[in-house]
């Protein structure tokens, strides 16, 4: 259990531009538990057969609806794409509710309906010093990001987490880029993490670099505040409850700021699934 590397030859080089999402039925190849051995796992890497997508961007997501949801769980669930290789797609999840509970019982050969790739991914600027800030499960999209980055020596990561480090796919990242991790276990740890975020972002600001963040909302608010104070370019990946993933149900909206590019959509609700999940930090109100 745990520390398995989610590796393999990337499906394709990173490309800018939108891909057309499609709908397909995928088979479960395996479900790998992560975490300390001897404990019941709540963290899993779900490996699926490869969907027929031509391009995708780290930060994009996929809607998954396993057949074992039956009719009682009508919604698919959105998952940030962890990694994609020529043979498979990997999603990584933590058991949090009814859907992920049922997904933790998937076995090889089970069928999952999938639609994607959805939304806007992270920008990739090979020559810019890039700091990845991950909080807990926010580490997931960065697995694909560091795998596809053509100049990983320009990238580093700061990772804050509460569960044991073996619960997260860290090894798949630190074989490409250096990862500093901080575990929140006692009072003071969080303050230390916040201080470290600020210092690292200050360094990036001086280098005119790029900061990309994914994690819980309070963490994102902190990053957003520092980005504004330090004047560093920063993108945030938001997570909201979704039913459709394609912009129709209007359940996942976030509020735009007065800096939103389209003047008609400023200070307005916009769909996280299609306008995001990755936004420039100054474009949204958290």
């Amino acid at each position: 259990m745990g520390n398995e590397r989610l590796t393999g030859r990337p499906l394709c080089a990173y490309k800018e531009g939108m891909s057309q999402p499609n709908f397909c039925e995928l088979d479960v190849l395996d479900l790998v538990p992560f975490g300390q051995s001897g404990k019941e796992s709540r963290f899993f890497a779900l490996r699926l057969t490869r969907p027929d997508w031509h391009i995708w961007q780290p930060g994009q997501f996929v809607m998954l609806r396993p057949d074992n949801f039956g009719l009682d769980l009508p919604w698919a669930r959105p998952f940030g794409i962890c990694h994609m290789t020529a043979r498979h797609m990997i999603c990584f999840f933590q058991v949090r509710g009814r859907g992920t509970q049922r997904m933790s019982r998937l076995r090889a050969g089970d069928r999952v309906r999938a639609w994607g790739p959805l939304g806007q991914g992270f920008v990739m600027e090979p020559d810019s010093p890039t700091l990845l800030l991950a909080g807990g499960m926010g580490i997931v999209p960065f697995v694909g990001y560091v795998n596809l980055h053509p100049k990983p020596w320009n990238v580093s990561m700061l990772f804050g987490h509460r569960e044991h480090i073996s619960c997260y796919p860290v090894d798949s990242i630190n074989e490409h880029v250096p990862v500093d991790s901080l575990r929140e276990q006692q009072s003071g740890d969080l303050d230390n993490f916040i201080y470290t975020i600020q210092e690292r972002m200050r360094d990036l600001a001086e280098q005119q670099g790029l900061v990309l963040a994914c994690g819980p909302t309070p963490f994102m608010r902190t990053v957003q505040t520092f980005a504004a104070e330090l004047g560093v370019r920063c993108q945030l990946s938001l997570e909201n409850r979704m039913a459709c993933g394609v912009g129709a149900c209007l359940g996942c909206v976030a509020r735009t700021s007065s800096s939103w590019p389209d003047p008609h959509k400023r200070d307005s609700p916009v769909q996280v699934c299609t306008h995001g999940p990755v936004f420039w930090a100054d474009h949204v109100v958290l």
């Binding site: 769980l73 409850r241 039913a243 149900c249 359940g251 909206v253 609700p269």
Partner: peptide, 23 residues
């Protein structure tokens, strides 16, 4: 119309509730 505040949707057994507010 801007619609209602979030959460606007919730999954229920074999269904869902929505109060999007006609955004």
């Amino acid at each position: 119309r801007q619609g209602n505040a979030v959460p606007r949707i919730v999954e229920t057994t074999a269904g869902m509730l929505n109060a999007v507010g006609l955004q």
